[in-house]
Amino acid sequence: MIISMKLRATREEIDEVCEQVKQFGYKVHSIEGEERVVIGVVGVGDVTACMESIEAMPQVDNVVRISAPYKFVSREFRKEKTRIKVNGTEIGGDEFVVMAGPCSVESEKQIMQAAEAVAKAGAKLLRGGAFKPRTSPYDFQGMEEEGLKLLEKAKRATGLAIITEVMSERGVDLVAQYADVMQVGARNMQNFMLLKALGKCGRPVLLKRGLSSTVKELLMSAEYVTAHGNPDVILCERGIRTFETATRNTCDIAAIPVLNELTHLPVILDPSHATGKRSLVPAVSRAGVAIGADGLIVEVHPAPEKAMSDGAQSLDLAQFQKMMAELQPYLELWRESRKTQEAALSAGR
């Protein structure tokens, strides 16, 4: 349930409500605005008795039961879009954020070339895998910590924030030393021990939708991270597995507005994995902008034909620069649409 405190409730009054909720065995999570505090309540069992008790407290304005199974990430819990600050960039705000770079870090020359090119083209975050989950045990598995060190060097040279994948609970602390954003790949979307650990990692988390996962399952995985202490979660639609074989995956483009209705978390699109073909990436990227995504994560490689992983879906440096230029008219419309949405939200408060 959600508890809305009265305007300018004191700290003592807020703490009293939180303590009352805890007496019923539930956990609390508060969002503090400039004038009003909202308290989220989660736990197991019927909350009716707790609701009735809280409603009787004079400092409480309103109590509403949350119908969604995912509590903290639902629009019922928070109407405003969550804005996540990363290295001076705000994801989920007034800027469309592009993350770009190679599938995997392969060498210092490769990652530096990619970082300098994507920064020049307008990307704000550098993606690159130091640890790679591969279907075949014989494929390139990544440079591991040496790859993380190269990403850190690229960050120092370009100013780009780093997003890289973490594959296990054991790797969280190591990756968090280097990464600005911790990426959870599609195969690990329901690795619940990893999600719990990321709730305590102190870094924003980008959570990719699983290969055959529903929107509800994606949101429940996001709930794991938030319920364990980390509200900074970015959702990523990266295509799902269907009967279609013309593309690597099927881009569920409609999932973006669906997620925007259901959750306050930022939503981005991965057109590279969604299609598996570099020729389709620019068109699907434009679709992502038009349909309301908060950003893109795109695979870009200095020499895709020599890439150790995902070369077929990686843009080269010139192709990425061209795509970014072609996105500009769409981004102007995106900014106007975002202003309209924010105005409507403010009017409805």
Rank of each mutant, 00 (worst) to 15 (best):
M1F: 08
R8I: 04
E13T: 07
E19I: 03
V21G: 03
V28R: 02
S30D: 02
S30W: 03
I31K: 15
G33Q: 08
V37R: 03
G45D: 02
C50N: 08
M51Y: 07
M51H: 07
S53N: 06
N62Q: 12
R65C: 07
I66L: 12
A68S: 12
V73H: 05
E80L: 09
R83V: 15
K85M: 11
V86T: 01
G92R: 07
V105G: 04
I111V: 12
I111D: 01
A115M: 08
V118Q: 02
A123P: 04
G128S: 03
G129Y: 01
P133A: 00
P133T: 01
P133W: 00
T135M: 08
F140W: 11
E144H: 14
K149L: 12
K149D: 02
L150A: 11
K153R: 15
A157H: 02
T158V: 12
A161K: 00
T164P: 12
E165F: 05
E165Q: 04
V166L: 02
M167E: 15
E169M: 13
V172C: 10
Y178H: 10
V181T: 09
A186E: 07
F192Y: 15
M193V: 06
M193W: 10
L194T: 06
K196F: 08
L198N: 00
K200Y: 10
L206F: 11
S212V: 14
Y224N: 03
V225E: 01
T226E: 01
N230Q: 09
N230M: 05
V233G: 08
G239D: 04
F243W: 15
D252L: 14
N260R: 13
E261F: 11
I268L: 11
A274D: 02
K277V: 08
S279R: 13
G292A: 09
V298Q: 01
A307C: 05
A307F: 04
M308I: 00
S314Y: 00
L315F: 07
Q321M: 05
S337N: 14
E342M: 08
E342F: 06
